[in-house]
Design a protein around this nucleic acid. Structure first.
Length: 267
DNA sequence: ATGCCTCCAGGATGGAGA
């Protein structure tokens, strides 16, 4: 029993291809709760037993080979929420994509979010991304209004670099998604309603990233993006004792293109 | 050195990621 709990979020880029690495990482780091994005599988394909063997409870939400989110917890996993009220549907479909799941673990509601990519500024996925974020913000604002002392974390792959220093060369991203003003405004909305980025103060940039493209030697060249974030309510922010990005996990054969983002929370 | 992309479905190669 330590005096702090370890929570994390990680876009694993396939749960099935990454399960050995995920298990090794959980054991090595002593992580209590992990939000996973891009599991890329159906519920029946998710390697849940690999995690239950290690003492974790598991909740997964997936539909096919795209998206997919999960929560693992070894300190209790209650009140699972699949998606959020008003979560937009992708156009032309009648189903909501599996991009959001939450569970309450030791009194902390930990969301695993996979924000739509956007693709290009002209693509229909771009307004979808903005609508998705606005709908999430409306819920997040209401949760805090309902209980100003709530311990809620919005974690995952936001697909937004909030500051110019969050990409290795802002000139390269001229006219691209992830850095556009509407996306940054959509992200800033969460701080306006009271949520705080609890990682940046403890892992300041420049040159601090959570994602490196597989191509063009982006990782060894240190050419990455900070697009995975942990935003919390004020009551939870007060309990953060440490935070870091586990850059080493991006190394080696079989790595995800994202690194885990880790937050330590006082009991 | 941290190293030239990887995942999925399908059964070849193309879509998606960012």
């Amino acid at each position: 029993m330590t005096d702090s709990l370890r929570f994390a979020t990680w876009n694993v880029n396939s749960a099935r291809a990454r399960v050995d690495r995920i298990c090794a990482w959980l054991e090595k780091t002593g992580t209590d709760v992990l939000a996973i994005q891009e599991t890329k599988c159906r519920d029946d394909q998710f390697p849940a037993e690999r995690f239950t063997e290690l003492g974790y409870e598991v909740s997964h939400h997936g539909a096919n080979q795209w998206n997919g989110v999960a929560i693992l917890s070894r300190i209790g996993l209650d009140d699972v929420q699949i998606g959020f009220p008003g979560q937009p549907e992708w156009q032309g479909t009648e189903s909501v994509e599996p991009r959001a799941i939450a569970a309450t673990c030791a009194g902390i509601t930990w969301w695993s979010l996979y924000v739509p990519n956007g693709r290009t500024l002209e693509d229909p996925h771009y307004p979808y991304k903005l609508e998705w974020l606005a709908a999430l913000a409306r819920n997040a604002e209401q949760w805090l209004a309902d209980d100003p002392t709530a311990s809620i974390a919005l974690t995952g792959d936001w697909n937004i670099a909030p500051l110019d220093e969050d990409v290795w060369d802002i000139a390269v991203f001229e006219g691209a998604t992830h850095v556009s003003a509407p996306e940054r405004d959509a992200f800033a909305r969460f701080t306006e309603i009271g949520y705080q980025d609890v990682v940046r103060p403890l892992a300041p940039g420049p040159g601090v990233y959570t994602y490196w493209d597989y191509t063009q030697l982006r990782f060894p060249k240190r050419q990455g993006m900070r697009i995975d974030h942990v935003l919390t309510t004020p009551a939870l922010a007060e309990r953060i004792t440490d935070a870091h990005i586990d850059r080493d996990e991006r190394k080696g054969k079989g790595a995800s293109d994202h690194a885990p983002v880790v937050v330590d929370i006082a009991r």
